[in-house]
Design a protein around this nucleic acid. Structure first.
Lengths: 325, 325
DNA sequence: ATGAAAGCGCTAACAA
DNA sequence: TTGTTAGCGCTTTCAT
C-alpha cells in the first residue's frame, strides 16, 4: 500500500505559479470573457503540468453544480460488436466537448439505473431505446439534467429496422414472411418495436402479416420455429438480430434446409460472425457514425440548456446483402 | 425543461427530522460505533424518504475522501455474452458492499483510462487482464486507491486458458498444433499470454511448439491461415477466441475441409453463436461466478486497506466439448 | 487582470 | 446520544 503523496490541489498550482486559485481556475477551464495575459497563462499551465495536477472531479462537480459525466445505459445482455463501436464513438464525440462517458449494464442484478446515476453524479443519461416516463422522472430526481432519448423518438427508429428487413425480402419476391423473436425476455420490448416495422412493411406491400415464432439460441429450438414457418409456406424470415438469425440457420440445417433456397433469412447488427455463417448472413448494419454524432449533439445541446430539436432520424439502418438471401 | 425543484439536502432532512446533520449522516450511513435510539433513527429515515432525499455523490466523495465508485476497464471489442455476465455479476457483488460499478470501454478513440478514472473519481479500477506498471502508476495518480489485478496475477490465468486448449487437443491425439492469432491489434497482448500457455502445454507433452498464424474475421484471411497449417500437417488449432475460431471454420469451408476430421478447432469464450456454428464449436468457458466473487472480494478487501492475498486462481476455465473436436 | 472570500453538500473530530 | 465546527478542492461573485 503506497499512499502516494497527497494529490496536488489547485491551490498548490496557484502557489507554484505565483497567482491565486481564481486565476488557476480561469486558465485551466479557459473561461471565456477573461483576458489572461499569455505570460500568466503559461506559468499556470506549466506549474500544473510539472506538479502533475489533476482537478478533483468531485470537488469540481460540487462547486460547479454539474459534473461532466455522461452515463450510458446499456440494455441487457446480448449485444455484439456494434455496440462497442457505438460506445466508443459516443465516448469520443463527447470527449471533444469535455464530457466523459461511462457505461452501466442494465441487467437484473446490478443496481437500478437511477442509483447509479446518483452514485456517479452523472449530469446526463443516454440510452439506446427510449426511457419510459417514470424512469426519466427517476433519473432527473437522481440528479440527471438531461435524459436522452425521450420517449417516442427511438421507437420509430427501431421500427424502421424491421421495416427495412421486410422490405428487402418483399423486394426479392417473398410474399409470406416470418419473424424470429428472441426468447430472451430482456429483448422482447425492443423486438416488438422491430416487429411493428415488419408488420407495417407487410401491410404497405399488401402481403400477409408475418408469422411470429420465438426461438432461443440453440439449434433445436430454432428447428421448431423453422417447422412452424415451413408448415405455413413461409419463405422469408426477419430475425430479431444476427444471433437469432444464425440460430435459425442452424435450425434449418437440422432439417436439411438451406438458405436462401428453402428459407431466406435477414438478421440485424452485422456482427462479425454474420459474414462467417454458412451461408453468409444478410443483415442490417447501421451508420454508427451518424447515430453517434446525433446522440452526442443532443446531449451537448441539452446540457447547454438548448432544447434539441432535429428532424433527422435516430438510426441509419442499411441492408448488407449476403448469400442467405 | 423542468428544473425540478432543487434537490433536498441532508440539512433539509435534518431539519425535517428535528436533528442535526451529523445525526442524519450517522443514521444514513449507519455508522458503526454509534448508538442511535430507534426512535431518532426512524424519524430520520422517514424524513429522508418523504423528502425523496438522495445523498449528493460528489459532496460525499469530497468530504469522505473516497467515492464508492469502481471503474471497470473493458478491453477493446470482443464483447460477448460472457463479458456481460461478468460485468453484471461484478456489479451485483460490489453493490452488496455499497459500491457502484461503471464500465469504460478502452478503445482507441475514447479518452485514456486514467482520465476517465479521474473524471468519475473512481476509488478503484478493475481490469480483465493485468495493468502494466505504468498504467497502475497513472491510475493511482488519477486518484484510484486500488487497482486490480496487479501485474502478474492475471497473465498466468490467461496462460491457463491456452494450456487447457492445447491439452485438450493433445489428449485427443493431436501432435501438431496450430495457433490462430487475431489480427486485431488490441487483442494481441492478451493473445500472446494465451499463446504462452499453448506453448507450455506443447512442451509439457513433448510435442512441437504451435505454428502461429494470424487471421482477421473473414473467410478469405482465415483460408490463408488454414493453408499455412495444412501445408505443415497441422491437425489441431487453438484459436484465440470463438470469433477467430469461427473464422477458421469458415476458412476451412473455403478449402472444402471439415472439422474435426481435417482440422480440429478449439475456441475460447463460449459465445452464443459457438454452439450454432457448423460444426458446433468446442470452446473454453469460464466459471464466471468464481471469477467475479474473486475480483469483488479483492476490491472490497483492498479498499478497506487490507492487502488481498489469496492463492486461488483468477480464472476457472473449462472445456466445452462439441463437434469441432 | 487578479484576488479575497463565500459557499457547494457532506463527513468527522471534538465538545457538550 | 447529539450538536458544533471545520474543512474536503473547486468555482464564482464581487472587489480591487
Amino acid at each position: 500500500m503506497t499512499r502516494p503523496a497527497k494529490r496536488p490541489t489547485s491551490f498548490d498550482v496557484a502557489r507554484a505559479a505565483g497567482v491565486s486559485q481564481t486565476t488557476v481556475s480561469f486558465v485551466l477551464n479557459n473561461r471565456p470573457g477573461q483576458s489572461i495575459p499569455e505570460g500568466t497563462r503559461r506559468r499556470v499551465l506549466e506549474a500544473a503540468r510539472s506538479l502533475g495536477y489533476r482537478p478533483h472531479a468531485s470537488a469540481r462537480a460540487l462547486a460547479a453544480g454539474r459534473s461532466d459525466i455522461v452515463l450510458l445505459a446499456v440494455p441487457d445482455l446480448p449485444i455484439g460488436q456494434g455496440i462497442s463501436r457505438f460506445v466508443e464513438g459516443l465516448a469520443a464525440a463527447l470527449a471533444e466537448h469535455g464530457l466523459t462517458l461511462v457505461t452501466h449494464l442494465a441487467g437484473a442484478h446490478g443496481r437500478p439505473l437511477p442509483d447509479v446515476c446518483a452514485a456517479v453524479g452523472a449530469s446526463a443519461v443516454v440510452g439506446f431505446g427510449a426511457f419510459d416516463p417514470d424512469t426519466v422522472q427517476a433519473l432527473h430526481h437522481a440528479g440527471a439534467d438531461v435524459v436522452i432519448p425521450a420517449h417516442g423518438d427511438q421507437d420509430v427508429a427501431m421500427q424502421s429496422i424491421g421495416h427495412l428487413q421486410a422490405e428487402h425480402l418483399i423486394a426479392r419476391g417473398h410474399r409470406r414472411i416470418g419473424y424470429a423473436m428472441p426468447a430472451h425476455t430482456g429483448l422482447v420490448s425492443m423486438a416488438e418495436d422491430r416487429l411493428k416495422g415488419v408488420i407495417q412493411a407487410c401491410a404497405d406491400a399488401g402481403v400477409d402479416p408475418p408469422l411470429v415464432a420465438r426461438t432461443s439460441l440453440d439449434a433445436g429450438s430454432a428447428a421448431q420455429a423453422v417447422t412452424r414457418w415451413t408448415e405455413r409456406s413461409i419463405t422469408g424470415i426477419c430475425a430479431f438480430n444476427d444471433e437469432t438469425a444464425i440460430a435459425v440457420l442452424a435450425g434449418m440445417r437440422e432439417h436439411g434446409l438451406t438458405a436462401p433456397a428453402d428459407l431466406a433469412v435477414v438478421g440485424v447488427d452485422d456482427i462479425p460472425t454474420a459474414g462467417l455463417a454458412a451461408p453468409p448472413l444478410t443483415t442490417i448494419s447501421f451508420g454508427i457514425q451518424e447515430v453517434v454524432a446525433r446522440r452526442a449533439e443532443a446531449v451537448v445541446a441539452e446540457l447547454a440548456g438548448n432544447r434539441f430539436d432535429d428532424a433527422r432520424p435516430w438510426l441509419y439502418p442499411e441492408i448488407v446483402q449476403r448469400a442467405s438471401t
